[in-house]
Design a protein around this nucleic acid. Structure first.
Lengths: 343, 343
DNA sequence: TTCATTTTTTTACATGCGTAAAATTATTTG
DNA sequence: CAAATAATTTTACGCATGTAAAAAAATGAA
């Protein structure tokens, strides 16, 4: 392949025997030209290896084919996993994903949005930090570019929100724990960085009340996103202190649970549902590592795929229709109970 | 701020009272204009919120300010962590990082390079998949754009390689294990996707021989990047089979060790250095989760920061000097022993 | 074959910037 | 203050594409 070197679309058009506008049309949508034309262009493409200059394209198009994806923390495999799904769907739809991570920092989140702005994306998918996010900056951004939020919501921002039905999922696991043993206490951070945690707290309380049990919150100190470390420290403190009001612990998320289990192990406390176990621990999210904890963690699985699909589909609809949504749509997926051996 | 709306550099130049070329010069390098000019432009910048069109800039510059970062698998927190460091350094150097992940698939790795090509990056940092990488495609890519490899090497590709000194690190932990107990057997995949694994195998063998012990490899089946799962299955099989030739196991990496520990726990085998323990397990990499395994994992820490810094610095030097390296430089950092309680 | 329809070509202009050379103006130095 | 130097402006062109309108050509149906 590649006889002479092709510099631009003009030369490629000449080489392939068509005019530049026709070739341009082909690149914007191969189906917009006659089949015979398409085939001849594609044959030429094999021969001459030319690709349109992406900068010139993006400069002149009304819309770029870029879709920004900003996640709260790529170092958390949960986000990496959902980002992977989202990226795949974006590529399949013929767009180009631009993945950026806030790495837990509000400043970096703001910088990420700022950086995306200059790229003029057709749309953006955002998993915001939550409590520490700059909400005003975020809303201002969403006014300018179509945005769909996932995992975490920012009130009055974006075209839509796609997330987990915490009420259902927490209700489900509280139900399970109550009918299979003692009613759980709720292990969480006093001041969680993540709004989901607040929803889960509320869901826990209402579920317990619904079942006629008294809710008991264990709220541990800690700041930031090092949930395992925070959970470890909180659990160590809790487990060496006075006796627990219940032998069952529901953690606000799997990462706290991972820290909790590590602490319990270190304290020599046997966790699980076996006869020799003195504590049951459950988590939430079905974190990629939760199947390798000791013992394996009973948890609630978020439906990564569905959340990714719905988010991307919703954004693409907004982009295609070329008009902003007048009402903010909110889609919540149910969690699925994943029973392993920790509870 | 922002009185009228500024569309382009022409309008902004007029608004700020300079000519467009002067303003253009400022944006390319603020220090290339007189201080008073710089200050007036910056004042205007506050007032009018304008930012240059990144596509027009990149189209006309000799070089873009983009630096591609392609990692083997973002879903592995090790890569996420090193990517975070690299991204930060790139931003600090005034470039824009473009992060893409192969997610363990050679096709996606090739696609990633292809996608980066169209972005005309000033340079690229690559942590290749290794064994399954398309070496020819990779070398062809490196001919076109300055590339530095990290974590994994591809022979005869790229300007430089920055990684870990497996010989030193494995030697160190073998030394430690031998002097504190029985000589370790080596737990690894039969056909690892990652070339580092081969180096570690060799390093293990030579270290054992140096210390007068017979090397013993336990090579488990499995394909792909689900190391925890592969380690879990391999360990389960191994631990339920005939008695082990040693009570000490060195895993080729932490993710295998995480699976191993999970399996040992399930088998009721107590791992650690305590008196009631029957097995010692060590890993390698100081994976973010290795401090929360049960028991906490003794391992070798890779120096994320140094690897990231050296990689970025090397690439920037190539970019700045505007000439390709004639010799391929290879930098290996020593690992550090992280003693926890698993061995 | 003829006519209506679709596709392609031609022509022309727009986009938002980089950059080079020459002319001008401002600043610094002696 | 004049000369030397540095910064800025003017002018002009280039980059690689999108896009719109009118003209021409190809295609398909009767």
């Amino acid at each position: 392949m590649s006889d002479p070197k092709i510099k631009n679309m003009e030369e490629f058009a000449t080489a392939s025997g068509f005019s530049r506008p026709t070739v341009s049309k082909y690149f914007n949508d191969p189906n917009s030209v006659r089949k015979s034309t398409r085939e001849r262009i594609e044959a030429a493409l094999e021969q001459f290896d030319y690709r349109p200059n992406i900068y010139a394209m993006n400069q002149n198009r009304r819309q770029t084919k870029n879709i920004g994806v900003v996640v709260a923390n790529l170092a958390d495999p949960f986000f990496a996993e959902i980002a992977r799904n989202i990226e795949r769907l974006i590529v399949e739809a013929g767009f180009r994903p631009i993945l950026v991570s806030s790495y837990g920092s509000p400043e970096q989140e703001a910088d990420a949005l700022d950086g995306l702005r200059s790229i003029k994306p057709a749309g953006v998918l955002i998993a915001p930090l939550g409590r520490s996010s700059d909400r005003d900056a975020m809303r201002a951004f969403c006014d300018d570019v179509p945005s769909v939020f996932f995992d975490n919501e920012i009130e009055n921002a974006g075209e839509a929100f796609v997330g987990l039905n915490n009420h259902q999922s927490i209700g489900m696991i509280v139900d399970y724990l109550c009918r299979s043993g003692e009613a759980p206490i709720f292990f969480e951070m006093k001041l969680p960085p993540n709004p989901n945690a607040f929803k889960r707290r509320k869901a826990y309380i209402s579920s317990m009340e619904r079942l006629g049990h008294e809710p008991r919150l264990v709220q541990i100190d800690g700041d930031g996103w090092d949930f395992e470390e925070i959970g470890f420290r909180g659990a160590t403190e809790m487990l060496t202190g006075r006796p627990l009001p219940s032998d069952t612990v529901l953690c606000s998320n799997d990462r706290l649970a991972i820290g909790f289990l590590s602490a319990a192990y270190e304290q020599g406390i046997r966790v699980g549902i076996g006869p020799d176990c003195t504590l049951r621990v459950a988590g939430h999210d079905d974190h990629p590592f939760s199947r390798f904890t000791c013992p394996k963690l009973t948890t609630v699985a978020q439906d990564y795929r569905s959340i990714a699909e719905k988010s991307v589909r919703t954004l693409l609809e907004v982009i295609d229709s070329d008009r902003r949504a007048e009402t903010r749509e909110s889609t919540l997926f149910d969690g699925k109970l994943v029973m392993r051996c920790s509870a």
